[in-house]
Amino acid sequence: MDRKILDGGDIKRILVRMAHEVIEVNRGAKDVVVIGIRTRGVYLAQRLAKIMEEIEGVQIPVGSLDINLYRDDFQTRAEQPVVGRTEIPFDVLEKIVILVDDVLFSGRTVRAALDEIIDFGRPKAIQLAVLVDRGHRELPIRADYIGKRLSTSRHQEVIVKVREEDGVDEVILSEGVEA
């Protein structure tokens, strides 16, 4: 049984709230850059940055990150995932990087993303923003900005759809398949 957790309006409100939180915590948007994790994190990052730009009236650089080359499950996979492009067309040195992903689960993707960003330079700080935190962390990683906390069981699936990729904005909790 699939359950809709968030609709388009919810997502919009969450991003506006997050934008305000980021600006509040960092006392403005100076030195803030936003990097989204491929694929859906990138669209969320772009939207978040746009809202912050509107609030603060400054330009906020946005990058995208493909973490496949930094994954830790390489030895156990049967086939390699397709590698997308990483585009960080700005210097991260001494910047406050807002790392954006759709769902925070085991924390392994974020771990890979942290390593990858640091290979681009040494930021002043990295803060994590996620649309959904569904728990079940396997690493000591937490988000700084959370859209929605969801308690889930491991076999359930959280499906995030964004209109740029899927034509619709929504978050679905699916029962998935019992492993």
């Binding site: 080359l69 930094y70 390489f74 492009r85 290979d119």
Partner: peptide, 21 residues
């Protein structure tokens, strides 16, 4: 895939940990 790797070659650290081990 090679196109994606071309970007890696332009990073400050032109190295990724993918094939560690």
């Amino acid at each position: 895939t090679a196109e994606s790797f071309k970007e890696v070659l332009e990073r400050p650290i032109r190295k990724v940990p993918t094939l560690r081990g």
